[in-house]
């Protein structure tokens, strides 16, 4: 086993044995479970509450597309914010606690340190979201008449590129900023800017800013051209991890 593999294995064990195993998977699974149920019964609840004020209100019958839309909305908001907050101290946490100084004076390069973290936590996010998708797919099948696989899984896979991009961004921010809260703040600002940037057509078509709207379109069963956003998203994620490694190599610890 080389230094990279030993450190990556440490990251996996750290996920399993600390709060990390509960927070992200817990949030993903909670919304995977409740999303379809909420989508199924929201019109009925709404109807019961406002029927006195608005007589004759006719709410449409919910479909699996509503459950999928709920899932995509939860991924793009709650899950993404969870990723940003929980990874604000991905690297800086180890620098502050002194563990980085101990492991980086052993045969583990700073590049391997950063890349191992980004890869392991990227895979962790993918695993948690795929498990959540499986759950939401099953619950949708129970509460609705049919749950087509294609829209849900294609939309989720496209969103995962966006999620992985933010893991990479947080890796960079946690190298550049020693404050986890500061990194999370800038991460949330980056998310807001990227969301707004999708309004501009070139960015909304070719850049990673298009990933969330395109993922939502796919989940709704619509056509979407995702090749460029996926490609630029993956390239940008790799570039962010490379930049994180480069910055980290220059830093005094």
């Amino acid at each position: 086993m080389n230094g990279f593999a030993a450190f990556a294995l440490k990251e996996v064990r750290e996920i399993v044995r600390t709060w990390r195993i509960w927070v992200l998977p817990g949030i993903v699974l909670f919304f995977a479970l409740t999303g379809p149920i909420l989508a199924r019964y929201t019109p009925q609840i709404l109807g019961a509450v406002v029927s006195d004020q608005i007589p004759g209100l006719n709410l449409p019958t919910p479909t699996s597309a509503d459950a999928y839309a709920q899932w995509m909305k939860n991924l793009s908001q709650i899950v993404l914010v969870t990723v940003i907050i929980s990874y604000g101290g991905l690297v800086s946490g180890e620098v502050r606690s002194g563990t980085a100084a101990l492991v980086l004076t052993k045969p583990l390069s700073r590049t391997a340190f950063v890349v191992a973290k980004a890869v392991v936590h990227g895979v962790f996010l993918v695993a948690a979201v795929l498990a959540g998708t499986l759950v939401t797919w099953g619950v949708t099948a129970v509460f609705f008449d049919g749950a087509p696989a294609g829209p849900l899984w294609s939309g989720t896979l496209v969103w995962l590129v966006f999620g992985v991009l933010f893991v990479a961004l947080m890796a960079l921010l946690s190298v550049v900023l020693r404050s986890a809260a500061g990194a999370a703040g800038i991460g949330i600002a980056a998310y807001a800017i990227l969301s707004a940037a999708a309004i501009w057509k070139p960015l909304g078509r070719y850049s990673p800013a298009a990933l969330t709207p395109q993922a939502a379109s796919l989940a709704a069963g619509q056509e979407a051209d995702v090749l460029w956003p996926v490609l630029t998203g993956l390239i940008l994620a790799a570039a962010l991890v490379a930049a994180a490694a480069l910055f980290f190599r220059q830093q005094d610890l």
């Binding site: 086993m1 230094g3 030993a6 450190f7 294995l9 180890e94 606690s97 563990t99 045969p107």
Partner: peptide
């Protein structure tokens, strides 16, 4: 280091095994 930082969730033996792993 003067104030060594460890992974609090590990045991001493686990940390030594991890450190040994970094050396192969």
């Amino acid at each position: 280091p003067d104030v060594p930082g460890f992974y609090d969730w590990m045991t001493g033996e686990e940390f030594l095994r991890f450190a040994a792993g970094l050396f192969g």
